[in-house]
Simulated scan of single mutants.
Amino acid sequence: MSGKTKVAIIGSGNIGTDLMIKIMRLSKVLEMGAFVGIDPNSDGLKRAERMGVPITAGGIDGLVAMPEFKDIGIVFDATSAGAHKKHSEILLAHGKRVIDLTPAAIGPYTIPPVNGDANLDALNVNMVTCGGQATIPMVAAVNRVTPVHYGEIVASIASKSAGPGTRANIDEFTETTSEAIMAVGGARRGKAIIVLNPAEPPLIMRDTVYCLTDDADQDAIRQSVAEMAAEVQSYVPGYRLKQDVQFERIGDNAPLRIPEMDESFTGLKVTIFIEVEGAAHYLPAYAGNLDIMTSAALKTAEKIAMRSLERTDA
């Protein structure tokens, strides 16, 4: 296996810039081929230019017009759900592989430690959301021990870490994450809530995961959760369980009403608390929500690139 796969990033904001720096510092199989924005004065474009990366402020049309475009194998889209629909059509028409960091959900949901190898041949893969990347592995960890009837996640991120793209996609965040809790996490029903915390100094990303299951082996759930956390830590070192997994038995004498399912629940309530500290490649360490997205996208792209190179060498 030889050579690196050239990639482009559309979106010169927080996520796109952090992803660019990760690729340049960490990746042994990916190489920056182009960095794309729409504001020539953005910090991301200026930084990319200083680092020797070919840039354009012409958006998707500017990327296609660049001489470097023909050598690009994978394109990351770190813009918005609405913009991604247009970008995906254009990129797929040019035969490019696409990794979507918006909640557009055109391609299959991809969470590296849960189904990271299942979608490597898809032309467009969706990285769900920051909350999804942090919490769906935990839903899946519980679900592989006992079926999850209902999974709810609450993602709390520092307000300062939420840029214009994140704020424009709040509705898509909740919808896409809720669907992925079911499609990837395995829950029968899912719900997602995001909180932009304005506290000063900014707080590190915190996530709470609630799973309602039948009565099950609590030690097996603890072990499954710990093993899954370790898998996520392999590519997001700042990912950690904040405290021990919590269990509560919901009895027939006081059933829990689930409005989203219009039914009452008795059984086991599993609560998992997570903290995600960023690697601070571009943004402060409190922005773990961005770090887990870019780290997941990087891991997925590297797997896609390695598979393509192996096939070429074969």
Rank of each mutant, 00 (worst) to 15 (best):
T79M: 07
I106R: 14
Y210S: 07
A83L: 13
G267C: 08
A158D: 13
P108M: 05
G267V: 02
R311E: 14
R97Q: 12
L30S: 02
A8N: 10
I106Q: 14
D61T: 03
A301T: 03
I258E: 03
I9H: 04
L268P: 05
D262P: 00
A155H: 09
N126I: 03
A65K: 12
G11H: 07
P40T: 11
M20S: 08
M306Q: 15
V75G: 05
G13C: 10
E227V: 03
A140D: 05
V75L: 13
M138Y: 01
M182A: 04
I221W: 13
V98C: 05
R257I: 11
C211P: 09
D117Y: 09
T312C: 02
L91I: 09
T5S: 13
A183L: 12
M32N: 11
L45K: 09
M293G: 09
M261L: 13
P198S: 08
E152A: 15
R257F: 15
S234I: 00
A168F: 08
H149Y: 14
A296D: 05
V139C: 10
P67D: 07
V245C: 12
I10E: 14
V75A: 10
A254L: 12
G186S: 07
Q133R: 13
G37P: 11
R47G: 07
A81T: 06
S161V: 06
T300Q: 14
K303F: 05
D262Y: 12
N289Y: 03
T300A: 01
P201E: 11
S178Y: 08
R249K: 14
A81R: 01
K70T: 05
A230V: 00
I9N: 08
A187M: 05
E89G: 02
I304S: 07
D121W: 07
D100I: 00
T17S: 13
K70C: 00
I106Y: 14
E260T: 10
L123H: 11
R249I: 11
E227C: 04
A314S: 02
G16T: 00
G107E: 10
S161T: 13
R307C: 01
Y109G: 04
P137W: 14
N119S: 06
R249L: 14
S88C: 01
A122W: 05
R97S: 09
S264A: 13
I153C: 09
N169A: 09
D219H: 02
R307S: 13
N41G: 15
C211G: 03
T5Q: 00
C130P: 08
L241T: 07
K299C: 09
N143K: 01
F247D: 02
T300V: 11
G278A: 04
N124T: 01
R249V: 12
Y235S: 05
D214E: 15
V7Y: 07
M1D: 12
Y109S: 08
I274T: 12
F76P: 03
T176M: 10
R307K: 15
P198A: 13
M228H: 06
I153P: 06
E175A: 09
N14D: 14
K85T: 06
V270H: 10
P284A: 11
P113T: 08
L241Q: 04
H149N: 06
L92A: 08
S2Q: 03
S234W: 06
Y282P: 04
